[in-house]
Nucleic acid binder design. Structure first.
Length: 201
DNA sequence: ACGGAGATCTTCT
DNA sequence: GAAGATCTCCGTT
């Protein structure tokens, strides 16, 4: 199956977040291929978006959000968890944009995932942004890599796009109280309506 | 089923 | 020094 290319990622962040539903996220590890179907995403777009790490400009952590579309933005939070994002924004615009992958449906490498999420039912392997990075072994090694390169260990494949009739939207989850209107209410969370693997919040 | 709190450490103020 | 794009455990209903 072909990888998503630069053109795919070089569009408005919110549009890409919607279009990432149904695509495949793959980590080619030494032990084998671990893959899941993307069933939930969130868009973080622009300097103005108070919920985005791009708010108030570049820092050492978020600089990749301002860079080339199709790169990964992986960061550490709450002392325990890695969050996997894909840089997505129009080209030639100095503007931060990224899509958080919030949930997957396990597809390949189920034994590896079970090992990475030991003791938990399959339903809880990848139904949250911190859980799916644990299941796929995604961490600091994967920050700032080009997901479109043929030899990158982490990449996305075209999968199967989801029709509008099967897409649901709502405001984003987990935003702090300092995030005010209109950003707190932007319907920038997308998920596949009939999926059993969306995050539980 | 649901809700609250602790864990744990990086980043930015 | 505080908050954070979260998860898990433990309590009560």
């Amino acid at each position: 199956m072909p990888r998503l290319n630069r053109t795919f990622y070089s569009r408005a962040t919110v549009e890409v977040a919607r279009d990432l539903l149904g695509r495949m996220l793959i980590h080619q590890t030494r032990a084998g291929r671990i893959a899941g179907r993307i069933v939930e995403t969130e868009a973080y777009s622009g300097f103005e978006d108070e919920a985005s790490h791009g708010y108030r400009g570049k820092t050492a952590r978020n600089v990749v959000m301002f860079g080339t579309p199709g790169f990964s933005y992986v960061y550490f939070i709450y002392g325990n968890y890695w969050m996997m994002n894909v840089v997505a924004r129009p080209q030639r615009v100095e503007y931060p944009g990224a899509v958080l992958i919030r949930a997957l449906e396990p597809v390949e490498g189920l034994e590896l995932m079970a090992s990475n999420r030991s003791g938990r039912p399959q339903r809880d392997w990848t139904n949250g942004p911190g859980k799916l990075t644990m299941a796929l072994n995604i961490d600091a090694r994967h920050d700032g890599i080009d997901l479109t390169m043929p030899d990158s260990p982490l990449f996305l494949e075209t999968g199967q796009p989801v029709p509008d009739t099967n897409v649901a939207t709502d405001p984003r989850i987990g935003l702090g109280r300092r995030v005010s209107e209109p950003w707190v209410s932007k319907p920038w969370r997308f998920w596949i309506a009939n999926s059993n693997f969306v995050s539980g919040q």
